[in-house]
C-alpha cells in the first residue's frame, strides 16, 4: 500500500541479496500482511519453499513482522523474521510518496473536542492545553519553526466551526492507567 516493498521493491531487494550470496527461496507480495487470515493463505501457498528457508525478510511495517511470526509459529517456529524497513508511523496517505502521521492510536481519543485535529500527534509536546510558549507566528519551536503549531491549527479549526468554547476548556491530563501494557480489542 505504501510501497515500502511492493513487487518492484521486493524484486530489487531479492536481487541485491542474491548478489551478496544469499539464496532466495521465494518472493511474495501479500495483499495485507498485517491480516493473519490473508497471511495464513499466502503461507500455505509457499509451504514447500518454507521447508528450505532459513530466514524471512519483510519490507512491511512492524505489524507485518508480528503477523508473519505468529502465522508461522506452529509449522515453522524456527524461521526468524527480520524487518527490512524502519516503521516511521502509521500514516495518512495524501498520495503515494506522501504520508503524514495524524493519529497515534493513543486509546483516549479527544478529536471531538479538538476539531478533528489530534493534539497528541500535531503538538510536539502532546500537550492537552496548548499552545505553549514555544509557538511563534503560528509555528512550533521544535524543528526550527518550520512546522505548524498543532494547537494553533486546532484553534483555527474550532474558530471556523464556531466552537471556541471547546478550545477554552481546561482539559485533564491524559489517562495513562490503561496505556502501559499490551493493548488488545477482542469483541467476538
Amino acid at each position: 500500500m505504501c510501497q515500502t516493498g511492493g513487487t518492484e521493491g521486493a524484486k530489487e531487494m531479492a536481487e541485491k541479496l542474491e548478489s551478496e550470496g544469499f539464496n532466495i527461496t521465494t518472493v511474495i507480495v501479500p495483499e495485507e500482511v498485517c491480516d493473519n487470515r490473508v497471511m495464513k493463505k499466502d503461507a500455505r501457498n509457499i509451504e514447500e519453499e518454507l521447508q528450505h528457508t532459513d530466514a524471512i525478510l519483510t519490507l512491511s511495517c512492524g505489524l507485518g513482522v508480528a503477523s508473519i511470526t505468529e502465522v508461522l509459529s506452529n509449522k515453522f517456529p524456527l524461521i526468524p523474521v527480520f524487518v527490512g524497513t524502519n516503521t516511521e508511523f502509521m500514516g495518512m496517505t495524501e498520495r503515494i510518496g506522501r504520508f503524514y502521521m495524524r493519529c497515534q492510536g493513543c486509546g483516549d481519543c479527544l478529536l471531538n473536542e479538538t476539531g478533528g485535529i489530534c493534539p497528541i500527534t500535531t503538538c510536539a509536546k502532546a500537550l492537552m492545553n496548548g499552545p505553549c510558549g514555544g509557538m511563534v507566528e503560528g509555528m512550533c519551536e521544535v524543528g526550527n519553526y518550520e512546522k505548524d503549531c498543532g494547537w494553533v491549527l486546532i484553534y483555527k479549526r474550532l474558530k471556523q466551526l464556531g466552537r471556541l468554547d471547546l478550545f477554552s476548556k481546561l482539559r485533564e491530563p491524559r489517562n495513562w492507567s490503561e496505556s502501559g501494557h499490551q493493548r488488545e480489542v477482542v469483541w467476538r
Binding site: A124, K125, N129, C132, G134, E141, V142, R171
Partner: peptide, 21 residues
C-alpha cells in the same frame, strides 16, 4: 522548552502534565 532543543536532545520528553494542569 522541548528536550530536542537542548544539550541532551535524545532525552525522553515527558509532558505528562501541562502548565495548566
Amino acid at each position: 522548552d522541548h528536550t530536542a532543543m537542548g544539550d541532551l536532545p535524545e532525552s525522553k520528553p515527558v509532558f505528562d502534565l501541562d502548565s495548566a494542569t
